[in-house]
């Protein structure tokens, strides 16, 4: 059973009071839940949040399912999101994704067996001048080649 930390509960209370409507706090609170729930939002945590925020579960679930930055499935410790939009594709983003998937032996959007990495293809991340690029957890890594991307990820995996 998922529960937010005390700090998290305070955060939720603060966010509820921060905006003009309680509903506006759904996105920040979901971010918080995702952070405390190993990078994804589980159905139980939605029920929990619904009780905590006193908002219908359907509203929270609608928001959760609408936005792509909330993960509905467990993700690896490293969530590698490779931009697969037009500028990046022109400069080899798809080849890069294929290379990474092959190297780390995962399927796109799926978590690796050891739970360490998820590679997903995402839409434009607003860094087209430095294509191809990827986002690992919160940070951007730009001007990649398959080799350099592999090196970055390997470095981070070993650092863990």
């Amino acid at each position: 059973m998922f529960k937010l930390s005390d700090e998290g509960i305070n955060f939720v209370k603060k966010e509820l009071a921060r905006y003009e409507t309680k509903r506006s706090a759904i996105i920040p609170c979901l971010y918080r839940v995702q952070k405390e729930n190993d990078g994804w939002v589980s159905p139980e945590s939605v029920s929990y949040l619904s009780e905590l925020m006193e908002l219908p579960e359907a509203w929270i679930n609608e928001v959760l399912n609408f936005y792509t930055m909330f993960n509905k499935k467990p993700v690896g410790k490293l969530h590698v999101q490779v931009c697969n939009n037009i500028s990046c594709c022109m400069l080899g983003a798809r080849e890069l994704t294929d290379h990474l998937c092959k190297t780390f032996n995962v399927k796109p959007e799926e978590i690796s067996e050891d739970g360490k990495i998820t590679i997903s293809k995402v839409e434009c991340l607003g860094s087209c001048d430095t294509a191809p690029m990827m986002q690992i957890n919160d940070d951007y890594h730009e001007n990649l080649t398959p080799g350099s991307a592999e090196k970055i990820i390997k470095g981070m995996l070993n650092g863990n």
């Binding site: 939009n85 500028s87 839409e123 434009c124 607003g126 860094s127 087209c128 001048d129």
Partner: peptide
């Protein structure tokens, strides 16, 4: 909310 593919000026 700069989402248009190819745009990165606001960032």
């Amino acid at each position: 909310d700069e989402g248009e593919p190819g745009t990165f000026k606001d960032r």
